[in-house]
Amino acid sequence: MNLRNEQKRPLKNIGTAINIGFNLDGMQQPLHSLRIDFYTIFNKKKGDWMVQSKGRKYLFLLFCLLPTFLLFVVFTVYPMINGLYMSFFEWSGASGNKTFIGWDNYKELFSDPIIPKTIWHDYFLVVTKVIGIMILSLFFAVALTQLKIKEAPFYRIVFFFPNIMSVVVIGILWTFIYNPDLGLINSGLNKIGLGRLAKPWLGDTFWALPSLVLPSVWAGIGLFMLMLIGGILSVPKSLYEAADIDGASSWKQFWQITVPLVWPQIKTSILYIVITTLNGSFIIVQVMTEGGPNNATQVMGSYLYQKAFKEFNFGYGATIGVMILILSLVTVLLLQVFLKREKVDY
């Protein structure tokens, strides 16, 4: 992702840029050489005619960078660090009674019977979503690029639309689709004669969690399909043509050309699904089931919300937050290793 910038700005090359905007006066160089020098890296040993602009340059840099960075520190970095700190306290939110309790919150975390459930639920969602979304979006991406389908733009537009809908709307809509009396699913099952399969989906301790996967897949396909389409379109056409001449089947072409060359996009998609699920699955949970029935859909984030903002146990909530942070960082790192493949160039 950041390759572009690393190539452009290797750390060792950092120097002072020449800024002719401020020191044209006294400069003897002809314009063409000026062009070459402009924004090139200036070696301090060579001369000092631009030194006078340094102060102004840094003022400009401060103007550009400081307000943004300050806000970033105050509203992003500091809260994270403070959250870490808070996880060592027992605190109900009232200003006076904040007591340091060391590792007690963490001990409670390890003995809390609901915590393993929340972790399991989160990873259940991660795995099912990765499988469901990747298979479908890869299939659609290949179908819409490799086969000549005239109405392909229509499918792209339709499939992507749920991606920009709010999770609240998606959640409410699907709660209603699952509604035992008024919803589409049960009445559909009744219509086709499978009425015995009808059940209160979100109220059933076994079915509630799997029921949350479908809306996420429904809403998630489009984005990843577009990313994969981007990858497939950047594969040189000549490769497929050559494979055609060699008589390779479409199936073989898919595994030997498409998958290896689109691997960076596949990897990014998987990582993105994992990150957004671990960090955001609780929103759809909160809207559709609030963690119920009987914690059957409780995920880490929804449990944090319940502990911190409903039971006002902010210290313990922060501890759950630390757990989410650590688990998602570890998961992402492990995935980076597992999904690593030799870069393929044909």
Binding site: F72, P79, G321
Partner: peptide, 28 residues
């Protein structure tokens, strides 16, 4: 604009996109 630490700053912003913000919401 060339300046010392520009790549670091860019990567700090980039890395923060990967970090779950839930923990930060309580202090916020």
């Amino acid at each position: 604009v060339k300046f010392r630490g520009s790549a670091v700053l860019f990567n700090v912003y980039l890395a923060s996109m990967m970090i779950p913000m839930v923990l930060g919401w309580i202090p916020l």
